[in-house]
Amino acid sequence: MSQARTLYDLLGDADSLAIVCHNNPDPDCLSSALALGRIAAAAGVDERRILYSGRISHQQNRAFVNLLDLDLQPFDPEVVHDRPDGALLAFVDHAIPGANNEVPPGTPVDVVIDHHPAEGIDARFVDHREAVGATATILAEYVAELDVEVDATLATALTFAIRRETLGFLRGATPAEYEAVASLHDRTDRDLLRRLSTPSVSGETVDAIADAIRNRVVRGGTLLTHVGRTNERDALPQAADYLATLEGVETAVVFGIVDDAIHLSGRSTDPRINLGDALGDAFDDVGSAGGHREMAGGQIPLGIFADYTTDDATLVDIVNRLVSNRVFAALGLDDGGDED
């Protein structure tokens, strides 16, 4: 029996389905949740909820939710406590309770569909494919195989997510992504797709990216920079995407202080390194970090640093030294090099 049919049969025995997105969900996660909800509806599950935690602050993510009119609810801890028989819990685009989500570690999970590197995944149904470029690719395969009705909203959501997750098929794309988008082509709303691709950018985001450009340090082909303290968490991956295109730069890592944590985002085209593994090695003892070979991120609680000083400039300087030392050491660049 295929994975799609196995999932469909599992959902057919359920009374309800709670689909939990990862923190600060992006279009890959959101479109996958939408598709899984449609599959559950086709299987006869009447009660379905998509839950998220964190913020939907990136301008494309906000546009995605608003233009597609997605029905999202804030994460409710009661959903995962004392679930009755027939109440299923699903993860899409993430895999482990407590890792990039608000679900308590050790919570039983029924469905996991993901493409990110992860170990120790435990669920009744698991489709974990690190080789594909997007979780939305897997869900697009499912809806095609199960003959689930695909309207313009779902087709456009999945298509946009696959395009964005692969940077327009330039990062991590496989034949599966092309096949998935081709299967959705006739039902995709091209005008809506254009509007999703070109949302307005806030002045705060532009300022944060400007700070990243100004604070950059380059060693060899690696660029490391920060945006200081910011409320624009989603400016970090945008800055990383842009700075990774600079001449001579193969790896770009951007970090900033958001609330009570240090957030990192990195991009790499260097075939000699796996950026997800490198950031994991650098920060797993003090926080959580990881991702793919070409795209990775992390989050480190400020902890004692938050109590050390109330001066943001001093705090940023301390964090800059800590993060720089660890990143450059993990990439074998701790002996110094050219700086810009």
Rank of each mutant, 00 (worst) to 15 (best):
S2K: 09
Q3E: 15
T6W: 14
Y8N: 10
D9W: 10
S16D: 04
C21K: 06
N23L: 14
N24K: 00
N24T: 11
D26N: 05
S31P: 13
S32N: 08
A35P: 15
L36Q: 00
L36N: 01
L36T: 03
I39D: 02
I50L: 03
L51R: 12
Y52D: 07
G54F: 01
R55I: 15
Q59C: 13
N61L: 02
R62C: 12
F64P: 11
F64Q: 06
N66L: 12
L67V: 10
E78K: 14
H81G: 15
G86P: 05
G86I: 01
G86H: 02
A87R: 10
L89W: 10
V92W: 00
P97I: 02
N101D: 05
T107R: 05
P108Q: 06
V109I: 09
V111R: 00
A118W: 00
E119Y: 09
D122A: 10
A123W: 01
R124A: 04
F125N: 01
R129L: 07
Y142F: 06
Y142D: 00
E149R: 07
D151T: 08
T156I: 03
A157I: 07
A161C: 06
A161K: 06
A161T: 06
I162H: 03
E165G: 11
A173E: 04
V181R: 00
R194H: 13
R195M: 09
P199Y: 03
V206Y: 08
A208N: 01
I209Y: 02
I209K: 05
D211A: 12
A212R: 04
R214C: 11
R214F: 12
R214V: 14
N215K: 08
L223I: 03
L223R: 02
V227I: 06
R229T: 14
R229M: 08
T230Y: 01
E232R: 08
R233H: 11
D234G: 07
Q238Y: 07
Y242Q: 15
E250W: 13
D259G: 12
D259P: 12
D260M: 06
L264C: 10
S265G: 08
R267V: 11
S268L: 01
I273A: 05
N274P: 14
L275N: 05
D277R: 14
D281Q: 13
D281C: 09
D281I: 15
A282Q: 01
F283P: 07
D285P: 11
G290S: 01
G291W: 01
G298C: 04
Q299D: 08
Q299H: 09
L302G: 02
L302H: 03
F305G: 07
A306S: 12
D311Y: 08
A313D: 10
V316D: 04
D317N: 14
D317V: 13
I318C: 14
V319N: 02
N320Y: 14
A330R: 04
G332C: 04
D334S: 12
G337S: 02
D338S: 13
